[in-house]
Design a protein around this nucleic acid. Structure first.
Ligand SMILES: [Zn+2]
Ligand SMILES: [Zn+2]
Ligand SMILES: [Zn+2]
Ligand SMILES: [Zn+2]
Lengths: 132, 132
DNA sequence: TTGCACACGTTATAGCATAACGCAATTGAT
DNA sequence: ATCAATTGCGTTATGCTATAACGTGTGCAA
């Protein structure tokens, strides 16, 4: 998926996510953009929908939040599953890929004749700093 | 984790989930239990909290729903990660375990000195019947 | 008896996400 | 140039998901 030129709202939302330390909820993004004219949740959600489609932003299902892709330009997303480690203390998120995990999961779905569309792998816990 | 005797509310919620064809949202469970005296979401959420703790129910993060464990009495839950395949058409859920996937993920977290607490693996797509 | 833990009921509130309407700008064919 | 289709945008309203806060009753152990 090649990323087209972002619209104004999409750029604003993306910039907020890129500058953030960790994942943000849609409503947090909204609050950060009120000075730029954002008034309603849909303005955020519509931008996020496109950014997710372009693959430059990921959604963290287990915490209802969004994060900028940590591997811009990487083609991993086109042929692999993205996994996340989420620190429940400081909110830090690490994005990674493991082809062996992908392989095993895809082998399983093939055996079941299941047709995968979107796979979520999220590890919640404590990062090295917070676990100390 | 050994499962203690369930309370009345916990039993009601568990029975609903066990008899269900697929995953249910907390509010759907609530509606199914109104005839049994349930009036408020908290009655459902409090029961679910315990059932999750006992390991007899799983939460599907990506669809905000709950499902009865498909492997009652299985000790897989104590030393492995649970994964789910969720059909987005018919709602059918298949629960499975893959030790190799567990192993790879745990190897990754060990390398990062990340301390995992709860891991989510959910594959959304189409089951064999619905993909045809 | 007193204190504690736990389940429960109720009301209110917080947090997350989308439906539905209308308008404006863009594009691309006819 | 005109028309139709698409896309983005703004606004209001609504729906779905989850928890806070308070009070009650019950069982049990110190
Ligand atoms: Zn990424
Ligand atoms: Zn941390
Ligand atoms: Zn299970
Ligand atoms: Zn299906």
């Amino acid at each position: 998926m090649t990323t087209p030129q972002l619209t104004k709202n999409q750029s604003l939302v993306f910039d907020v996510l890129e500058k953030a330390e960790g994942p943000l909820s849609a409503y947090t993004i909204l609050d950060k953009l009120r000075d730029h004219g954002f008034r309603a949740p849909l303005q955020v959600y519509r931008a996020l929908e496109k950014l997710l489609e372009y693959g430059v932003v990921h959604r963290l299902e287990s915490i209802n939040s969004f994060v900028a892709c940590a591997h811009p330009g990487d083609d991993c997303h086109s042929h692999g599953i993205v996994a996340f480690a989420i620190c429940e203390s400081c909110g830090q998120v690490t994005e990674f890929h493991d082809h062996e995990v992908d392989h095993r999961l895809m082998e399983w779905v093939r055996g079941q004749k299941f047709k995968p569309e979107k796979t979520t792998i999220e590890i919640r816990g404590l990062c090295e700093a917070c676990a100390a």
